[in-house]
């Protein structure tokens, strides 16, 4: 993993799925995170669906690590905040005049589990799908290529930004710029570092735009893709099924709320 991409190359069934199938799965995860009523359901979905998918995709370690890194801090902060401040009758312990309740703890954990399910779905999509393939799948379904290009470039620019920043830092150090810690010193570094980075990037973008136009980027003709995304009737059916399940879950949740 480097820069803006978290894709992990593996040879697996999950990787070979059509990107839109994985998008539909992610949509289902989001709908489930919003609609499922309680902690057991959410954990069951994570353990019963997302984890097996990660194992199938040979991504278990990276998947769990990313989940832990992102959701871990939320679990801590949400359980503390909800435990102390959302009220409830079952007191677990006191901290001065603050009371930590079981109901609050449960509310915090449920909220964190909702995040876990939504993030898990997104992670499986991003870790098993190269971004160009995702954009290709979307543009083949009518997503504007210009927007797809902007999205892709924004993601892919991070590695080149990192490389360039390193060269700039080298160049300024070679001119006697001392890298020291402390807020003031860091502020002093800002202009010599950011100036060439921004100016260089703007020039790069301008040159890249001209190079793309010189190769008919804006041509209205239907573009031929070098890469063919494998799809099947089964996957198409699965996508519809996942989309319907997501819609049904959201409608059910809405209906329950109105009751």
């Amino acid at each position: 993993m480097r820069g803006g991409s978290i894709y992990i190359e593996r040879s697996s069934g999950l990787h070979r799925l059509h990107p839109l199938t994985k998008v539909a799965l992610t949509a289902l995860c989001f709908a489930s995170a919003a609609a499922l009523p309680g902690l057991p359901w959410l954990l069951a979905l994570f353990v019963g669906l997302l984890l097996p998918l990660a194992i199938w995709g040979r991504l278990t370690g990276a998947f769990l690590k990313a989940c832990l890194l992102v959701v871990g801090p939320f679990v801590l902060s949400l359980t503390i905040i909800q435990g102390f401040f959302s009220g409830g009758e079952t007191v677990l312990f006191n901290l001065g005049r603050f009371v930590f309740t079981q109901e609050g703890l449960l509310a915090g954990l449920t909220f964190a589990a909702r995040l876990l399910v939504a993030l898990g779905g997104t992670l499986l999509l991003m870790q098993s799908t190269p971004q160009p393939h995702l954009m290709q799948a979307l543009t083949e379904r009518g997503f504007p290529p210009r927007i797809a290009y902007v999205v892709l470039t924004a993601i892919q620019i991070f590695p080149s930004f990192q490389d360039r920043a390193q060269v700039i830092m080298d160049a300024q150090q070679a001119r006697g710029l001392e890298l020291q810690s402390g807020l003031l010193n860091r502020a002093r570094l800002l202009l010599p570092m950011v100036g060439p980075l921004i100016l260089g990037s703007v020039m790069d973008v301008s040159e890249r735009a001209m190079a793309l136009e010189a190769r008919a980027f804006s041509s209205p003709a239907r573009k031929t893709s070098l890469n063919t995304l494998a799809d099947s009737l089964l996957q198409r059916a699965l996508r519809w099924l996942l989309a319907l399940a997501a819609a049904a879950l959201l409608l059910w949740r809405l209906w329950s709320a109105l009751q």
């Binding site: 070679a174 001392e178 260089g200």
Partner: peptide
Amino acid sequence: TTAALARRVGFLFQNPDDQLF
């Protein structure tokens, strides 16, 4: 440090735009 060595060794990088600000 590199900054200290800059008193003895000057370095012209390939791309001038990596340093001008």
